[in-house]
């Protein structure tokens, strides 16, 4: 099993740009810092509930810089967001938010293998659908976190899960609609912009 882990890591990570090479390159580190600051700025600014750009940024970072960087980027943003979010301290839900966003970063990294010609507008619908699906999965994970909080407070787990998922649905709808629009509209322009940036090499 332990022997399998490095192989899996190599498989999931971008073969050309892995985490180590990303962070060894000061230009890439600077670019990632700027993107993290931008993403945090948007994430922590007052905004309508569940309308966010962190998922897109994490997905794009995963896509451009590889799985590890995407996972770490999303986890870092969610960790900071857990303390300073305009909606209050995340508390027990924070690990679930981190897990959800890490999954988006992971899928972003894996998606590059399956997207031929990333600049093509033909895949706008595909990216929008993928964004919507990832958002639903993210919401399922975070609602599970809410259900666990309810369970700790004394509600039976089954009822806590059903009510957390059901009462989270209106917010989930906003999240899915906004994220599919954001993914569909901004994924390719953002990837293209990063591609043109001088510090990103060997992309695609």
């Amino acid at each position: 099993m332990l022997v399998f882990i490095p192989k899996f890591y190599i498989w999931v990570d971008n073969p050309s740009i892995n985490m180590q090479t990303t962070l060894r390159n000061p230009r890439r580190t600077a670019l990632l810092s700027v993107l993290a600051a931008l993403c945090l700025g948007i994430q922590l600014a007052p905004r309508p509930p569940n309308v966010e750009f962190t998922s897109l940024f994490t997905f794009v970072i995963g896509f451009v810089f590889g799985v590890s960087t995407g996972v770490l980027f999303g986890s870092f943003i969610m960790f900071i967001n857990g303390f300073f979010s305009p909606w209050g301290f995340s508390g027990l839900n924070m690990p679930f938010q981190i897990a959800g966003i890490a999954l988006i970063g992971l899928v972003g990294g894996l998606y590059k293998k399956y997207l031929q010609g990333y600049s093509s507008a033909e895949f706008v619908v595909e990216v929008a659908v993928l964004g919507a699906f990832l958002t639903v999965v993210y919401d399922l994970i975070t609602n599970l976190g809410v259900a666990i909080q309810f369970t700790i407070a004394g509600t039976p787990f089954t009822w806590a899960t059903i009510s957390a998922l059901a009462y989270g649905t209106p917010f989930s709808v906003i999240h899915v609609v906004s994220n599919s629009a954001v993914f569909g509209a901004a994924f390719f322009p953002l990837t293209k912009a990063l591609d043109h940036a001088i510090m990103v090499e060997n992309l695609g």
């Binding site: 619908v125 699906f133 639903v136 009510s163 649905t169 989930s172 899915v176």
Partner: peptide, 23 residues
């Protein structure tokens, strides 16, 4: 694959909405 993902998304949202409405 995309159609399946879209259907799954729709199914999850629809189930959640129905449960919400019922509750």
């Amino acid at each position: 694959a995309i159609i399946i993902l879209a259907t799954l998304t729709w199914a999850l949202i629809a189930t959640g909405s129905t449960t919400y409405y019922y509750l």
